[in-house]
Nucleic acid binder design. Structure first.
Lengths: 210, 210
DNA sequence: ACACTTATGTGGATGCTGTCCACATAAGGG
DNA sequence: CCCTTATGTGGACAGCATCCACATAAGTGT
């Protein structure tokens, strides 16, 4: 959108950020493959090579975009939790928060499929590394939000203690799998109500299986 | 591997198949993005443009590779089921066959990650379309193998009837999610025993939640 | 046997990409 | 005020997908 503003100064002033934002915009509409170095520099109104002063290569830019997308995912999940109506019963609250983790995750995947795919492109190990960058406003990464929700469930006795260890990976798998099948798998093109229903069914099943 | 055999005849004889095999080989080592038209023609010992007599464009080749990979996945799943020791109890047999669907799927993902990723690249709708091409020796696609296993469970009373509809998508989500997280998500690099353990835990959870 | 049509492969060109090298221009520090 | 360092530019190269015109073989009907 932002046509190259034809800057007058030789220095751009904030190129790294501009390239990152252009990259995010490209990823939003076309996924990680659409993050094209030259196009990003074009949008920043700068020559292609200027990018190499801020990113080692295209992969470095894509990786930065990926972290940004992961943070956006975390924010969406936080928002989903924040929107929850207050509940008195701690067990009910814990369950609602847990479910919000899943619904927020899947909501993001469906509304921002390009960013979602970018978030999981070359994701090294978002379990621990670079946690600060890929966190939401609350400082937690998507993975940490899930872990916290599971901890709550466990402390309410809603997960047998012996099954708590490693549960994040199992639960994450289920939710992530549905996300992937919905956005570019065989469930792509499912209409909103059906996708929401599938989400509900999946989380129901997870709760039973925990 | 097969260096261009420097054919003598003007016609190649079986170019389409040769390109497809080269494409599969490329996908095997580098995933769908590694399926490069020019490289495939190079391996077939033919000029780049010759490919366009057999595939509309690169995407068409990748799609053909994808179907091939899906069939390979089906074969691996069939093999996993075929390896099962015979059991008398029909319920136990149904459970074993169901678990084999999941373990076969995950085994393929871990041993052939490139092909696995290719299989799910641009997968349109493998639920119904092009079933014949992407099936294994038994004529069933991966999705159909799962559906059949679920039908068996249901007829043994191991799934409450009201939960049978749509169960394939839920189960598929869980297994697929773990596969994705294992091969290029945060669980990548998990060693074999741990990956196997995660598989077991996941399928346990699915059985409880069905 | 011969001409015609169709299928298949080749060569050359275009425009896109990522990336390298040499150079230009500014900003800041002594 | 000069020198170093950071940042941006220009030109080049190789690799890619794809298009067009052309070449060569294989059939096909007469």
């Amino acid at each position: 959108m932002t046509v190259p503003p034809r800057r007058s100064t030789y220095r751009h002033g904030n190129l790294r950020q501009a390239l990152l934002e252009a990259g995010v915009e490209l990823a939003r509409t076309g996924g990680p493959d659409a993050v094209v170095l030259r196009e990003a520099t074009r949008r920043a109104g700068v020559s292609p090579n200027a990018a190499y002063r801020h990113f080692a290569d295209r992969d470095a830019l894509v990786h930065a975009v990926s972290l940004e997308a992961m943070a956006a995912l975390a924010r969406t999940m936080e928002a989903e939790q924040a929107n929850l109506p207050p509940v008195d019963d701690p067990s009910a609250a814990a369950r609602a928060r847990f479910r919000a983790v899943g619904t927020g995750y899947l909501f993001f995947a469906r509304t921002e499929p390009g960013l979602f795919r970018a978030a999981f492109h070359v994701p090294e190990d978002m379990t621990q590394a670079e946690a600060a960058i890929s966190a939401g406003a609350g400082g937690l990464t998507p993975f940490q939000l899930l872990a916290a929700a599971l901890d709550d469930l466990a402390s309410c006795g809603l997960i047998p203690p012996e099954r708590r260890p490693g549960a994040e990976f199992i639960v994450w798998s289920c939710v992530h799998g549905l996300a992937v099948l919905l956005i570019d798998g065989p469930l792509r093109g499912l209409q909103d109500p059906q996708a929401t229903e599938a989400t509900r069914l999946l989380i129901d099943m997870i709760e039973r299986g925990l």
